[in-house]
Design a binder for these strands. Structure first.
Lengths: 351, 351
DNA sequence: CTGAAAGCGCTTACAG
DNA sequence: CTGAAAGCGCTTACAG
């Protein structure tokens, strides 16, 4: 056994192990372990030697060995409702993948359909079979009490995106929906609209009430009287948008502008207006939320609100990973900022 | 050490190991291993005893231990272009997830942007860091020769969805694009259209030429002369559809119907027609392919072609898993069948 | 601040 | 058709 042996192994392309690194650095494997796990209690000089050896050998810890011997799985689950319009989830996915890659974690997906009587059983199976360390829950799943309870029982930390309700010591991320809705409504008022219809979203989503609150605040600030018949319930779906728009457009004094709580319902509103031959924006201004692909592809292209979803998902997943590493992290205090995207579905009010 | 010891462990909730199963079945762990890996060479009686023990103990092999000791990773990668319109990929994702769950594999994602000079380096890092057994390549990635070469070098089997070119002994899945396009064109011809515009897709996709061929065949069968100025190149994007439609609608003798090779380009065509005040379908019939969400949300809703994408992705991933298990599988011979979805963007030709 | 030993739960290679 | 032994590459728990 000469030093050549090591070299040969190396050249054969077998990945370096913790023993190779230890030998190269002249320390024990436990010290290498301390360095790669950032445990501390290693002299600077020693750490530098180990880091150099890791770099020289292009060492990467074997996840299977870590999992088998340790208490972590290096896996995060993303449980989400499988929607008909996926563009929001696509961005969540991209952000969560980024954070996982940066943190050395693997991301596993569990798409679910709602309503689902076997939901909890599905989640339980996913969590235990896939051996997860943590879970990311986009809205509305982050507000399902039975999921929260299950994860708490199993002692699996979770992070929530755009949750509705508070949970003690939780990790979550939000954007300033209320302010964005306020500005969007204000924008319509500035164009001379006084009869402003509003289509609410699915009440289980936190965004639904925030967006409605922003609308109310803008009305109040402009001194426009609130009229209950101008508010319709929706469920964020295209069809529910159509139905709500039908009710609003059937009113004797129909709105000159309609604020839909997402783009799909705005598209439903445009669809319904077209069926009645109403020109947009001449006879009716329409706005949405989320800036999904349809917003720029529909005619006329839709004035809407863009959220930094990728960044939000990345931030909250990073926080989750930090917590999994034992760091004491709390939720981000500041909500992320949304921006209005102005297109051609809005124009001056005609009276 | 009495039998109670085993029972106690069991009740404590520690997952059963191969030793527990072996003890309960009265065999060695190697025999249990043979059963769970379907290796054969086990007497029926023995196998039954082991199966019973597995069931009684709710035994599930520890993947980390299998990976560490064996030559497999139980992981499949899905590498895909991260598109602006995700609905096709959403279905691929759902199908691949289904097959992986059924086969005991984990699915890992690598979204990439194109063009990407570092593509091969990214793929190499993904494959080696994530320790994959196999890879699923949706179009157009399945036709990238450098990816194929890399995977062949690393001896990693791959499965391709809707590839353009042949590869010896490969696993892939297709649908009958040519026939669907033929029928769609025929449908327009039956409505009296003789001036049929066609917008091609990205030439790197196999579907592009198949869909064009179907168009040509339908023209020929109806005895309609092919006119080169009625064919425009596109790239499957909304913008490219708009540009192509602009050229077609600028023609002196403009088409009365336009076949776009996907829904996004059809949406671009409708957008362009609207800007010119052309009524649809009165002045222009428009059709697309894929039945993406926009097809049913745009006005007027789009006549299009629906592919069984979830099923195709599931089938090809299952085949890949079978190959990874050492079974000799070949590609599915029969292409999957597409269906025309008739909506309101098409009508009788006006001349 | 550092290290020696045990063990995680399987598969492999070999023996019979 | 069945099994005993070695070993995969780490982390844990403990010692100093």
């Amino acid at each position: 056994m000469t030093d050549n042996t090591l070299d040969r192994d190396d050249q054969q392309g077998k990945p370096a192990t913790i023993f190779d690194v230890a030998k190269a650095a002249g320390v024990s494997i436990k010290t290498v372990s301390r360095v790669i796990n950032l445990e501390g209690n290693v002299r600077k000089v020693t750490k530098d030697k180990v880091d150099a050896a890791i770099k020289a050998l292009d060492y990467q810890p074997n996840t299977a060995a870590r999992v088998l011997s340790g208490k972590r799985f290096y896996v995060i689950g993303l449980i989400y409702e499988n929607p008909s319009e996926f563009s929001y989830m696509q961005k969540v996915l991209n952000g969560a993948l980024r954070a996982c890659e940066a943190g050395g974690y693997t991301l596993l997906l569990l798409p679910i359909s709602l309503p689902n009587p076997g939901l909890i059983a599905d989640v339980r199976r996913f969590v235990s079979q896939s051996r997860l360390d943590g879970v990311v829950l986009p809205a509305p799943l982050g507000d399902f009490l039975d999921i929260q309870q299950l994860l708490n029982e199993l002692a699996i930390p979770f992070a929530r995106i755009a949750p509705k309700n508070q949970v003690a010591h939780d990790i979550h991320i939000r954007c300033n929906d209320e302010q964005a809705s306020f500005e969007l409504t204000q924008y319509l008022i500035e164009q001379g609209h006084r009869r402003l219809g509003f289509i609410k979203g699915d009440p289980i989503h936190g965004a639904t009430s925030h967006r409605f609150q922003g609308y109310l605040r803008a009305l109040e600030q402009a001194g426009i009287e609130f009229r209950g018949e101008y508010v319709e319930d929706g469920m964020f779906s295209f069809e529910s948008g159509k139905t709500a728009a039908r009710a609003l457009l059937d009113l004797k004094e129909r709105p000159t502008a309609i604020i839909a709580s997402n783009d799909d319902m705005a598209a439903g509103t445009i669809f319904e207006a077209r069926e009645r031959g109403l020109g947009i924006p001449q006879a009716l201004s329409v706005v949405g939320f989320d800036d999904t692909p349809i917003a720029s592809r529909i005619w006329p292209p839709l004035t809407t609100v863009r959220q930094p979803i990728v960044e939000m998902a990345e931030a909250v997943t990073s926080l989750l990973i930090q917590r999994l590493r034992g760091e004491h992290v709390s939720s981000i205090a500041e909500p992320f900022t949304c921006h209005i995207v102005t297109r051609n579905s809005t124009g001056p009010a005609q009276s």
